[in-house]
Amino acid sequence: MTQRRLYLGPLTDNRRWERVAIRPDDVIVVTPPKCGTTWMQTIVALLLSGDPEVETELSIRMPWVDIRLRDIDEVAARLEAMAERRSMKSHTPMDGVPLDGAAQYICVFRHPLDAHFSFRNHVRNTPLRWFDHWYPEEDPGGVAFKRFLDGGPEGFDTDAMPLAHILRHYEAARAVAERENVHLFHFADMRRDLAGAFARVAEILGVTHPPGLMARLVQAATFDNMKADAARFCPSGGKGFFRSDAGFFASGANGQWEGKLTAAELEAYDAAMQAALAPEARCWLEFGAEA
Results as ranks from 00 to 15, higher is better:
residue 105 Y to H: 01
residue 123 V to F: 09
residue 145 F to M: 08
residue 108 V to G: 02
residue 150 D to F: 15
residue 145 F to I: 10
residue 136 P to V: 07
residue 105 Y to T: 02
residue 155 G to H: 05
residue 114 D to L: 09
residue 122 H to Y: 05
residue 130 W to G: 11
residue 130 W to D: 09
residue 108 V to I: 14
residue 110 R to F: 10
residue 98 P to D: 05
residue 121 N to R: 08
residue 108 V to E: 02
residue 154 E to S: 14
residue 124 R to P: 03
residue 117 F to Y: 15
residue 139 D to R: 11
residue 139 D to S: 11
residue 154 E to L: 15
residue 148 F to A: 07
residue 141 G to W: 08
residue 146 K to R: 15
residue 137 E to H: 14
residue 97 V to Q: 01
residue 145 F to R: 07
residue 152 G to H: 14
residue 99 L to Q: 08
residue 133 H to E: 12
residue 125 N to D: 04
residue 104 Q to M: 12
residue 151 G to N: 07
residue 142 G to R: 10
residue 134 W to M: 03
residue 105 Y to K: 00
residue 111 H to D: 14
residue 100 D to I: 12
residue 143 V to R: 09
residue 106 I to C: 01
residue 118 S to Y: 07
residue 145 F to E: 03
residue 121 N to F: 15
residue 106 I to F: 04
residue 146 K to G: 15
residue 134 W to V: 03
residue 115 A to Y: 01
residue 97 V to P: 00
residue 140 P to W: 10
residue 99 L to S: 06
residue 113 L to Y: 06
residue 148 F to T: 02
residue 153 P to H: 14
residue 106 I to P: 00
residue 151 G to K: 07
residue 154 E to N: 15
residue 120 R to C: 14
residue 141 G to M: 12
residue 117 F to W: 05
residue 124 R to I: 11
residue 113 L to D: 07
residue 115 A to T: 06
residue 120 R to L: 13
residue 108 V to C: 04
residue 141 G to P: 01
residue 155 G to C: 08
residue 116 H to V: 07
residue 114 D to G: 04
residue 105 Y to P: 00
residue 154 E to I: 13
residue 132 D to E: 04
residue 99 L to R: 06
residue 155 G to M: 12
residue 116 H to C: 04
residue 119 F to C: 00
residue 137 E to R: 14
residue 149 L to D: 10
residue 106 I to S: 02
residue 130 W to R: 10
residue 116 H to K: 05
residue 98 P to R: 00
residue 154 E to G: 12
residue 118 S to E: 06
residue 131 F to A: 01
residue 143 V to E: 09
residue 112 P to H: 08
residue 109 F to Q: 00
residue 111 H to E: 13
residue 124 R to M: 13
residue 118 S to T: 07
residue 102 A to Y: 12
